[in-house]
Amino acid sequence: MDLFSQFNDLPENLLPKDGTVNYYGLVLSNIKAEAYYNRLLDCIEWKNDEAIIFGKQIFTKRKVAWYAEKPFEYSYSNSTKTALLFTKELLELKELVEKETNETYNSCLLNLYHDGSEGMTWHSDGEKDLKEQGAIASLSLGAERKFGFKHKETKETVYKVLEHGSLLVMKDETQTHWLHRLPPTKIIHRPRINLTFRTIDK
């Protein structure tokens, strides 16, 4: 066995500089991805996301859920959430993602986009509760959606279509130098579930 073969199998970095985004492609078969998709739609405690913007409470159409190994508190958009404990399905998916990425995670923020009209504007995940430059593993289930990155200084953009059952990982200096978003589209009518496994540093 080639001593360096394991390194040659690492996914290509999608970013040209100032960060690392690896796209692993499909990590679940279509049958397993569909089974987890349907199960998570039913068993996760979905709630409309809320944020405080200019002192006004805003509720989004998309729904979110926050799970972890402990009841961590997590703050973003001037709102604080307390994690529910991992479900059996989330623990199974966390184990899969950890094996694929050779990283460890203790929490998961889930997003449910009901159709293509729901998305996310440009932002970076720089919350103080997150492990500094830690990996964020994004597992996609359901509708295929285009995901974008934009360099904060050069404005250079990179886009990737995230497939049903696929895995993308952001790490290193990515959050410092790049914004990311999920642009809305009129041609997608199926829901998408996005699981972002991350590490709370407390």
Score class of each variant (00 low, 15 high):
E127K: 08
L167H: 01
E163P: 00
T60D: 08
G126V: 03
E100A: 13
K81D: 07
D172K: 08
S117K: 14
T80F: 11
Y67C: 01
N102Y: 14
K202Q: 06
P11E: 04
N106E: 05
Y74I: 04
I31E: 15
L162R: 04
L26E: 10
L40C: 10
D9H: 12
L168I: 11
G126I: 03
Q133M: 13
S124I: 01
L26Y: 00
H189T: 07
T80S: 14
I200L: 11
E45Y: 11
N78F: 10
D49Y: 04
V161R: 06
K47S: 08
H151D: 13
F59Y: 08
Y159F: 15
L91H: 10
V21T: 05
K47E: 09
N22A: 12
I188P: 02
Q175L: 06
L41Y: 00
I44D: 04
H123K: 12
A137Q: 06
Y37F: 14
Y36I: 00
E73H: 14
D49T: 03
Y23R: 01
W122G: 00
N194G: 10
D201P: 01
A33Y: 06
V97C: 05
L28R: 00
R190I: 02
K171C: 08
L167C: 07
Y74G: 09
F4G: 04
P16M: 02
